[in-house]
Amino acid sequence: MTDSQDRYRRVGHGSAPILALERISKRYGALTALEDVSLTVNHGEVVCLIGPSGSGKSTLLRCANALETLEGGRILFQGREVRADDPKSARAVRQRMGMVFQNFELFPHLTVLRNVTIGSTTVLKLDSTAAERRARALLAKVGLSDKASAHPAALSGGQQQRVAIARALAMEPALMLFDEPTSALDPETVGEVLSVMKALADEGMTMVVVTHEMDFARRVGDWVVVFDKGRVIEEGPPKQIFETTTVARTREFLGHLGWHGESTLDAGAQISVAREDVDR
């Protein structure tokens, strides 16, 4: 792993990482979700976490966000330790990290606009006009200005997820966490969400994305971390992971997804994930 870090200069290198996981482990009773996991995320980097289902990726995000406690190791966010067991410091961390869930988790009893403003008003204590102004700007950014007064039930999955992204951005986070943001979407709507995420990345937002969209990881990711059974088995730039990997398990996993490396891609074969137009 150190090899790739030496040969390839990561985005944001040279200053302290914004998020550092040091040898963390997480257990649920007899089940080990994460074992001795270490990784770092730099400012402005887009880190993609890939791997089979159940390999611990989502758990890792929840630990980073202080939604879960650790059995071992520690997490540093902006230089300070994340303590999930201390409610006040946990809340402070979560205010500076935004999270987007696989199931969107919009608040169904609130309008779209209210979903986006509730964080600002309740937590940041912004006054309602300022909060609303910020919310409308964000809704415009994700392309949903016209849905401001609708309820989530009236929106498609892709639209709901874009609102969820706007809701997280309303808190002006330093880091955005995405937990399989497109896994619960119909294929037609996956593209609209990935476009929003790419635009965010282009603006320089630091992002950690758990995803099965390999095309996104390859084109938008700056650094890819491969998980299996709660451990990191490989990490490096996308080119290394997707084209020149020497780790058998990685190749096996990518093979399962129908990913056969550079040659197949160049041949223009339609890998399942390429239906969205990420380069728009």
Partner: peptide, 27 residues
């Protein structure tokens, strides 16, 4: 009410009481 709703509320930085009051209880 789904667990995810509590997570989403906490992820925005709300306290548990705020989350229960504004998000969970109304639903």
């Amino acid at each position: 009410v789904r667990r995810g709703q509590m997570w989403a509320a906490l992820a925005l930085g709300m306290s548990r009481v705020q989350a229960i009051r504004t998000i969970i209880l109304p639903q």
